[in-house]
């Protein structure tokens, strides 16, 4: 990215224009992409305090595809919110490309999300009554790109997830699988460093789930985008290069995925599905 600008990176960094925005979120050289050290998160206080995270250490390198698993209440969603710079740790440190996220202001974290992060949610979270194209354009509006370029990139992103021809459809006119592909296109369109996916296949049947996982893995392999995803299903976790298990607010164990049918199946097929195949 902009290694020469590392000295300017930090809480005091300028945010006047897009270049300055990039500089503010530029990497410190030699740092891992994501580094959590002793991260805790406590909701409430006193005897009513709820310890969602009790001290997480986690390092994720650029280009990895990581699955986060664990039962409900194990703190994996809280950890994802912290990784996504939507929330801050109660204690411990979170460094993103060497930048101290804890010290950032709300607006600086917004800029970090804008330039370096992409989100895919279980519930898709597309804007209702808004066409697929406009949904994908949305992050680019905050990048202040000219309309023509914005539209071109959004079309390209939709094409990359196999939705050419569906640009003018609203979410209500799309199937769940198609909606999630629009969401992936939206995450992809800004060319982020990391895509954070919170149970991306939670609302989909197994065939659609595999299509989505294929897309995420293609993003990871072909574009070098780091993917961190939460999932309950071992089949889906098997797509990842690494699985992190959460339990009671701690990292219980890390493991390489067991090679199973899903992984084998997925490996054979990295091409995006044809338009309309996801339609119910």
């Amino acid at each position: 990215m902009h290694p020469e600008a590392t000295t300017g990176a930090g809480p005091a960094a300028q945010r006047a224009g897009t270049d300055a925005e990039h500089r503010a979120v530029a990497a410190a050289p030699g740092s891992p992409l994501i580094e959590l050290r002793g991260v805790t998160k406590v909701y409430g206080s006193g005897s009513a305090a709820m310890h969602a995270l009790r001290g997480i250490d986690l390092t994720i390198g650029a280009g990895e595809m990581v699955a986060v698993m664990g039962p409900s209440g194990s703190g994996k969603s809280t950890a994802m919110n912290i990784l996504g710079c939507l929330d801050t740790p109660s204690a411990g440190s979170y460094r993103f490309r060497g930048l101290d996220v804890d010290a950032m202001s709300r607006d600086q974290r917004a800029l970090l999300r804008r330039h370096a992060l992409g989100f895919v949610f279980q519930g898709f979270n597309l804007l209702a009554r808004t066409t697929a194209l406009e949904n994908v354009e949305l992050p680019l509006i905050y990048h202040r790109l000219p309309a023509a370029e914005r539209r071109g990139r959004a079309r390209a992103a939709l094409a990359a997830v196999g939705l050419t021809g569906w640009e003018q459809h609203t979410p209500a006119e799309l199937s769940g699988g198609q909606q999630q592909r629009v969401a992936i296109a939206r995450a992809l369109v800004t060319d982020p460093d990391v895509v954070l996916a919170d149970e991306p296949t939670g609302n989909l049947d197994s065939a659609r789930s595999r299509e989505i996982m294929d897309l995420l893995r293609a993003m990871n392999r072909e574009h070098g985008i780091t993917v961190v995803m939460i999932t309950h299903e071992p089949d889906m976790a098997a797509y990842a290069g690494r699985i992190v298990h959460f339990l009671d607010g701690l990292v219980a164990c890390e493991a390489a995925p067991v090679a199973d049918s899903a992984a084998a199946h997925a490996g054979a097929d990295t091409g995006a599905p044809a338009p309309g195949t996801g339609r119910r």
Partner: peptide, 16 residues
């Protein structure tokens, strides 16, 4: 509210 959440998540600043 949800739409605003989405906008904030994809990097909209408060003033925007």
């Amino acid at each position: 509210t949800r739409e605003i959440g989405i906008r904030l998540a994809i990097g909209a600043r408060e003033d925007e």
